[in-house]
Design a protein around this nucleic acid. Structure first.
Lengths: 145, 145
DNA sequence: TTCGATGCAAACCATTTGCATTAAC
DNA sequence: GTTAATGCAAATGGTTTGCATCGAA
């Protein structure tokens, strides 16, 4: 974990930002909840447990900053709240999501399933793809009975 | 156009809702702007041209109703506003979008590119897919110089 | 007449912003 | 010491809701 924090610190410095205690606390919460898709409010509450003096605005600003640096991805599953997802080590593509319509769980697909599809889109539509968002809505394996 | 309105009217009746003048005006605006991805506010302004007495809340309620009946799809490109997209005649899948990061244009991909990908996801992740959302972010053919 | 639908205004709630204070190099 | 970062509270803006009124079967 230390080296991931160090790496993020380097990224911040490279863009001439500092890793303040508040930012570090936010990053730690994200690392500790890597499997989840926390909203800004969720992050705020968890950060507050360790650093009670932090303000909600700071969390918003930090998350926006991290999104700008591509440390996290900001996603929106249509429920009116933005969620933040730590980008995996070295992953340059956005991962896909499986949203369960029954229990609300959000699982991730790590592998990139869109390689061929993207080639086709770039060719057929003359569109230069920089990023993608793919979400499946359905019933997760746990809810299938 | 008449028969599309009639069809929507039938869908409403089947769910025991009425096609009121306000709802009809809203549907007409959607049909007339099928290529666009209007926000609720956009729809409201256009409906107001023909039916100036309509209220914004009614437009919101109508759009929500149409989304519930799967006449329109509610989409979110991450800019804090929901957009509404008429579902094509008989299309049971959600179509894909190309969002240009330069000019903001949103183009559509009618064909379903995810057939094989979905088979793989259902098999490998044991997830029953009901719907999907796929958006590519990049540079559209018009902005490529 | 009855119940859903409408319009208006107020309420909501996630997110952003202004500003005075604080802290890092 | 200078400049960025923070915390608080107020502002913003899209969306929802309460409620009295209206309208169609």
């Amino acid at each position: 974990m230390q080296e991931r924090i160090q790496k993020i610190k380097d990224q911040l410095h490279a863009a001439s930002y500092k890793l303040t205690p508040q930012r570090e606390a936010t990053v730690i919460v994200l690392l500790e909840n890597e499997a989840d898709h926390l909203s800004a409010e969720d992050v705020y509450l968890k950060v507050k447990e360790k650093a009670p003096e932090i303000g909600l605005a700071t969390v918003y600003r930090t998350l926006e900053l991290l999104a700008e640096l591509k440390v996290v991805d900001k996603i929106n599953f249509g429920d009116g709240v933005a969620r933040f997802d730590l980008r995996k080590e070295g992953a340059e593509h956005f991962h896909h999501h499986l949203v369960c319509m029954e229990c609300g769980a959000v699982d991730e697909i790590e592998e990139d399933l869109l390689g061929e599809v993207e080639l086709k889109v770039e060719r057929d539509y003359n569109f230069k793809i920089m990023d993608h968002r793919l979400t499946f809505h359905g019933i997760c394996h746990r809810c299938q009975r």
